Amino acid sequence: MVWDTVRFDSLPPDRMAALEALVGPPDGWTARRDLQLRLLAELGLRSDHSFLDLGCGPLRAGLPLIATLAPGQYTGIDVDADCIAGARALVSEFNLENRTPRIVQSATFGADEIPDEVRFDRIWAFQVFIHLTEPLVKAGFAALGKRLADQGEAWITLRIQDDAPGFEVTGAWRDVYAINHAPLSYFAGLAADNGLSLTRLGRFDGRTKTGWLADDAPQAGPVTQVMVALRRTF
């Protein structure tokens, strides 16, 4: 994949900062975008794949995805009304309407807004599940099981602590988002409950250039962030 990113770097700094404030810490808009695109290319995303960006925010990675994927192949879902408003404004500003993206605000992972029969070849949930409460994590896995195409893959980041007694929530972000962790077996069980298999792809750190960490790299505490792949079982 060759990403069309240069034209999206023309946003004024104050506008970029305002959008960035919706989705995370400052001064990372371009770096976090490029990291996601690098990972997606590495994982094998193709322009003809139907793609679900779960937790799309104001299209930090979504703009070049919309521009590069075949028309009609991008769907972005987010719970935050401000993110969706920002996303739709950017689609118009960069004249991407002819790419016919689907931008959806949803508190149900699209269950109430997208027809039941719609399936996706690839689903991306970057730093999304780590900020959900347990009922939402369970609902999210159910959505993945429902939306993934037969030969599809979902790539998501999780926070793992294998000696934890179960799902645990600590901290807060923007007053409404949790920070969670659980044993990998917990998430594998959720995947199996929804007709999916879970494969650990490796340790993950969004602050690094490549996103990957060696398994023997030091860490500050017992929680490890990983990226996993989910595939449908038959």
Results as ranks from 00 to 15, higher is better:
A107F: 03
T224H: 13
I77P: 00
T208V: 11
H131D: 03
P64R: 07
M16I: 04
F234C: 09
R32K: 13
F204T: 05
G72A: 10
F126V: 00
Q225N: 15
V137F: 00
A111M: 01
G189H: 06
A149Y: 03
N180W: 08
E134N: 09
I160E: 11
P218T: 07
W212P: 06
M227G: 11
A125P: 00
L90D: 06
L52M: 07
H49I: 04
P165G: 09
V137Y: 00
D112C: 00
G76A: 10
R60V: 09
V128E: 00
I123M: 01
P101L: 02
A31F: 08
L45D: 02
R88A: 10
K209N: 12
G195Y: 09
G140Q: 00
A61R: 03
Y74A: 08
T224I: 13
V137T: 03
T5I: 08
F234A: 15
A17S: 06
A139K: 01
A31Q: 10
G76R: 09
I114V: 05
I130V: 15
A87S: 09
I179H: 14
V137I: 10
A31V: 05
D27T: 01
F187E: 00
I84Y: 09
S50D: 07
L196Y: 07
D162C: 09
Q105N: 02
L230M: 04
A143L: 05
G110L: 01
R200P: 07
R207Y: 13
T208F: 12
L201S: 08
T170W: 15
A191C: 08
Y177C: 09
L35F: 10
A172S: 15
A21Y: 03
T133G: 14
D116M: 01
L196R: 02
R15S: 05
